[in-house]
Design a protein around this nucleic acid. Sequence first.
DNA 1: GCCAAAAATGCACGACCGTGCTATTTAATC
DNA 2: GATTAAATAGCACGGTCGTGCATTTTTGGC
Lengths: 199, 199
Amino acid sequence: MTKRDITHTRLLQHGLDIISVNGFAGATLGGLAERANVSKSGVFVHFGSAEALRLELLKTAADLARQAIIEPAFQAPAGLQRLRRLFELWLGWAPRSGLPGGCPFVSATAEFDDVDGAVRDYVVATLDGFIGLLVREIQEAQKLRELRGDLDAKNLAWQLFGLYNTHHTLQRLMRDEQADLIALQGFETLIQASMGPGK
Amino acid sequence: MTKRDITHTRLLQHGLDIISVNGFAGATLGGLAERANVSKSGVFVHFGSAEALRLELLKTAADLARQAIIEPAFQAPAGLQRLRRLFELWLGWAPRSGLPGGCPFVSATAEFDDVDGAVRDYVVATLDGFIGLLVREIQEAQKLRELRGDLDAKNLAWQLFGLYNTHHTLQRLMRDEQADLIALQGFETLIQASMGPGK
DNA sequence: GCCAAAAATGCACGACCGTGCTATTTAATC
DNA sequence: GATTAAATAGCACGGTCGTGCATTTTTGGC
């Protein structure tokens, strides 16, 4: 591992901290340089542009999320068990991965949903991929007769996305101690409504 | 209505447009000045500081939301009917109020959830008030035996908050034409699960 | 229509933004 | 350990940020 990679990795880590607390708009070259005790041009040469820095930070966040959520969840058996594990690991993955603030993808979604560009495209693709993962697991659970066959998998997946946002807002904005409880109960409510004998 | 108020109102309207598309970080004095064809110092003297501008924009957004959601919804009879009306009017209230982009409160939540200050406090208070409104309506529906008496009103209210976020992301980030459909179906799913005979 | 008050402008300021280029330091290779 | 290449620092640039103040324009009351 060359010197370059070491510094590069350290810059990315500090950059993620900034994004987690201050969002992507707060991830500036100068600010990152100061926090990492590097010169501003030193940071610049590592990424080529501010836009590239933000994009790379987002990709790093996606890697972190994969490690924190998807990889461990896939040790559970396919179907409802894995779906539940995915949801549980989804909640609070950011602090569990060492980030000091909120989820970078929640920030990115809000900041770029009306701003075209490479960052937006990457957010869309990543979210699309993750929702697709949930959908496939729901469909697997349907095949296994753990969930009703007539329900809309995409629908349920996006309900879970909503619950994730609920949890995030309760946790970080409202500082509500019941955040975990409400999100997990919400999950069970949805699953209960999706079991039973079918219509 | 004095000249000052006229300009002030115009500035707020343009400011809301900026926030809706670029978030609060994008609402700068210079940018607002250019858009409104006013000098930068002209904008400054109207608000006193950039922080005050953002706070006032947020309050204006809250007023807009009240007019677009709460006022019309309260013409429906209390209980489940009013709750459904509240939810329906909640979805897409921003474009319906003339805003060109997303919901200012979604932006504010993401941008300020880890940043202390007056803006954060106002977001917390406003969201708290709105959730409280939902909770009271749910409880009213419980009294009227439209919803099960044993369910947790706060829980359901936050489920609806999640659905609102789902709708917002589907609409603006994913540009999914099924956004309305999925959100409304989600509402009915939750209500169905909250009716029935009680445990 | 005049005149005081109000509103908006012009200009300047220090700070920070992103981006280049050159110089210097540091690391890897023989 | 000397040499070469890689990595970082220093510095300068135009642009925008928020903020102040003096000046000019506009407005409203008489």
